[in-house]
Simulated assay, not measured.
Amino acid sequence: MSSVSRRTLFRGAAAAAVAVPAAGLVAQQASAGRLFNGQAAAGLSLKIVNNSGAYDNGSVHIYIVGNDGKNQCHVTPDGELKPVQMSDNGSDGYTDYAIPLTGNETTLSLPEMSGRIYVACGEKLKFKAVEADGGAALAYPAAWVESDPNYPIVHDCAEFTYKGGAMYCNTTMVDMFSVPLAIGLKGAKDQTTGTLKQGARAKIFESVRSVEAFSKLVIDDKRVIAPGHGIGAGLFADDYFAPYIDEVWAAYQSKDLKVTTNAGTFTGRVSGDKLSFTGPGEVSFGKPSTKDVLFCDGALAAPNDGTTGPVAAILGAAFNRTTLAATPDQPTTDPAAFYKGDITHHYAKAMHAATEDGKAYGFAFDDVAGFASYIEDSAATELKLTLTPFE
């Protein structure tokens, strides 16, 4: 699974509208899995561990939803992969795909698919089957929207693609942060990521709340909404990054910006509203908006083409980390240089400061230079998702 396709997953999820089945549609783009036609298949061992200290096992509900390459689907408690159907909606208008915990450590079977593992605390999530393209799709929670039925519920998710014995997975804060989650992956090696430092959940809430421009993104003790979604909810200024974007544009009118990708080094200059590069290919970018920077989309969209896409990814990361104006050779790889100045991505800064390994998925291109809470294994034998302490 290429880095650009991973970014497509995260960017698509972040930009999805309320009623759009975001993860399912994005999972189709990842082209993962095969159609199981409702037949159970030998899957990967998935362990769910409740070390939250805040919710007992009976109050935690797990959902495994996504796409098998053709259909949007969900996983049953016994590991069966089933397509979403309109008839799955109950009398209340919502599906009940919840998988209960059987103890502090619950072992499940994860079939080949691409999607999300949702964790809901206190009450069940309200997933709704909706008609789409002559079939059924799934409307996912959009907890940054106050009118969404899942807004009152404490929940979060991890993302994954499992195919051909290979697992690609991450914890994500691209949309929001609520439940502290860690992932562990066993296979060719033993890896973990996403683990928060002791007391870090409260520290994240405190850090984001302390920055005036970001303070409205903190929703009680339920969640912190990513600033891109905050724009749509009227909680974050749509011109927040404008002074920094202007600074970048001014800096590279008179000097070169060099961006090195697997294809080689691209050399760019600003002329008017365009940042244009020569090198292995000719690529150019319009002047981005704050929304473009936060979603790594629009003027910074990254097609999976091997030229424009990788350059856009590096630019997106440098804008969000606010290293672009001061550093003419990108990508920047020293985390000590990230998130400097008053105008920076204080949300992503708080997420990275909170994790034991310094890695987090605070924005869609956070995997540039390897700073995302992402792990993979081509011969996976076990995936573990742990609810770590809230305190």
Rank of each mutant, 00 (worst) to 15 (best):
E159S: 02
A136V: 08
A182S: 15
E123V: 04
M86H: 10
P243G: 12
N89E: 05
A32I: 15
D92V: 05
N51D: 15
G309H: 06
L108V: 11
E112T: 06
F390C: 06
N150F: 01
T308R: 14
T171A: 09
T195Y: 14
E105I: 10
D273E: 11
A16S: 15
T307S: 09
D221N: 13
F214M: 01
F236P: 04
S59Y: 01
S31G: 10
G316L: 00
A137G: 12
A360I: 02
A301F: 14
L35A: 10
G165Y: 12
E391R: 08
A312I: 11
D88N: 11
R209F: 10
Y361K: 01
D220S: 15
E123T: 14
V211H: 09
A32F: 00
H155D: 04
P389A: 13
A22D: 13
G362E: 05
T193C: 15
L324Y: 00
C121R: 00
G199Y: 11
A137V: 06
F365V: 04
G24M: 11
T102M: 02
D190T: 14
D133A: 13
Q72E: 12
I62F: 11
L387C: 09
A13G: 15
L25K: 08
D68N: 15
G134V: 03
D96A: 09
T267P: 02
R7K: 13
V368G: 01
L108A: 08
G264F: 10
A13C: 10
L185A: 00
F160V: 02
A54P: 01
N67H: 14
L44Q: 12
V293T: 04
V154E: 08
P83I: 04
F390V: 05
S289Y: 00
